[in-house]
Design a protein around this nucleic acid. Structure first.
Length: 380
DNA sequence: TCTGGGGTCCTAGGACCC
DNA sequence: TCTGGGGTCCTAGGACCC
């Protein structure tokens, strides 16, 4: 997209991310830069070493990218009724049952690419498959500007030769565990009994890998999934020992988090402090508040308390700090409603057990089990 | 060699409740 | 005096994804 906005950069390696020589990584880069072996998440110092002098380095302009992303998502909403954005540059569309209206899967894919081109002048890769795993891998299989359709019957031939590292949830730690069993491809994984995978990878990851190797995955596309947390963190250009600097950075983070929470209609009851000590040792400390908040000062106070407690403990004392951050989570389960409050008031009255049970049943019918437990806890 | 920032989900132990 | 089993919440850390 930076090449779209700056025609002079077309054909050149372009790196979006940290300043060259600084601390940080490549966020993304042009296909010209990829030819030098540079990729997302690579330390910027490594990238600089590999890339030629004419390389263009840009800092990310998130506000601009977010605006373009919105335009793209709007264009996608015209293609299919259900769109689930997964990141700033990726979304799932449920196009099942659209063949009669639009045409073959290929036609739906071409139409999607055209809609994005017309809206923002960018190419996109599209993958179509029976579920989100296959659609994602299909999209990844041909970039840039690709269009790949995998039908149910084509799944084994498509998956089996792929390296097992493309499976969702198989990363830097999990891949070697599988490779130590002599496995390289998804086809290899498919021949392993489920019990072995569960033993080596744990219950959840093992089960997921087993399913994915067979091309099975969730096919529900769900729009409007609410975020679960809001956080702000900062890595210092140089490690910091001055507590006043840490406090000011924490205050900044709390203000950013509070602002974002209020502007997105969130109030959270869990404040989390994150700290990364020199050279690279990460810790978190969290505290559950008595009531949810979106107040900068309250978020800051909690984070600051947690930091001071940590600094007093032996482990953190006199250590230079590389990163500090603050997060907010634990949204209020149910918006407070008048009749819920009334029901809670009834509950805390000393009444006979039978009456109490009737009241609990009544609330449960209306709000569900979780609500009752929370209500009881608050008043006990 | 050096490892951002913003997220999600899972695990595991201890507290606490019934 | 010795003691179960299930469930949920809280906390810390870790793996992973874009």
């Amino acid at each position: 997209m930076e090449q779209r906005d700056h025609p002079a950069w077309r054909g050149l390696p372009v790196v979006v991310g940290a300043a060259p020589g600084g601390r940080g990584v490549v966020a993304t880069c042009s296909y010209e830069a990829r030819r030098y072996g540079v990729h997302s998440a690579m330390p910027i110092t490594d990238a600089t070493r590999r890339l030629p002098p004419q390389t263009i380095y840009v800092r990310p302009d998130m506000a601009h990218y977010t605006a373009v992303s919105r335009q793209i998502m709007r264009a996608l909403a015209d293609i299919a009724p259900v769109v689930e954005p997964v990141s700033i540059d990726e979304a799932y569309l449920d196009v099942s049952g659209m063949q009669r209206l639009v045409g073959s899967p290929e036609q739906i894919g071409r139409r999607t690419k055209a809609a994005i081109w017309d809206a923002v002048g960018l190419t996109a890769s599209v993958g179509i498959g029976p579920n989100r795993l296959i659609a994602k891998l299909a999209s990844d299989s041909r970039k840039p500007d690709g269009l790949t359709v995998i039908a149910q019957g084509g799944i084994p031939a498509f998956l089996d030769p792929m390296p097992l590292t493309v499976l969702r949830g198989v990363g830097a730690k999990t891949a070697p565990r599988l490779q130590r069993l002599g496995l390289k491809t998804i086809g290899d994984v498919r021949r392993v009994p489920p019990d072995t995978l569960r033993r080596v990878l744990g219950a959840q990851v093992g089960a997921r890998v087993y399913q994915q190797a067979r091309g099975l995955a969730n096919d529900r596309i769900e729009p409007d999934t609410d975020r679960k947390s809001i956080s702000k963190e900062h890595t210092f250009a140089e490690d910091v020992a001055d507590v006043a600097v840490l406090r000011d950075t924490l205050r900044w983070g709390a203000q950013e988090v509070g602002y974002l929470a209020r502007h997105t209609g969130h109030a959270g009851s869990v404040v989390t402090l994150k700290i990364r000590l020199c050279p690279f040792e990460t810790h978190t400390r969290s505290r559950t508040l008595r009531a949810a908040t979106a107040d900068d000062r309250e978020i800051f106070r909690s984070a600051w308390d947690l930091l001071q407690a940590g600094l007093q403990a032996e482990r953190w004392a006199n250590r230079a700090v590389r990163l500090i951050g603050v997060g907010l989570s634990g949204w209020t389960a149910t918006p407070t409603q008048p009749d819920l409050l009334a029901a809670e008031a009834t509950l805390v009255q000393p009444r006979g057990q039978q009456r109490l049970n009737q009241t609990i049943d009544a609330i449960r019918d209306r709000f569900g089990q979780r609500t009752i437990r929370r209500g009881l806890h608050r008043h006990e």
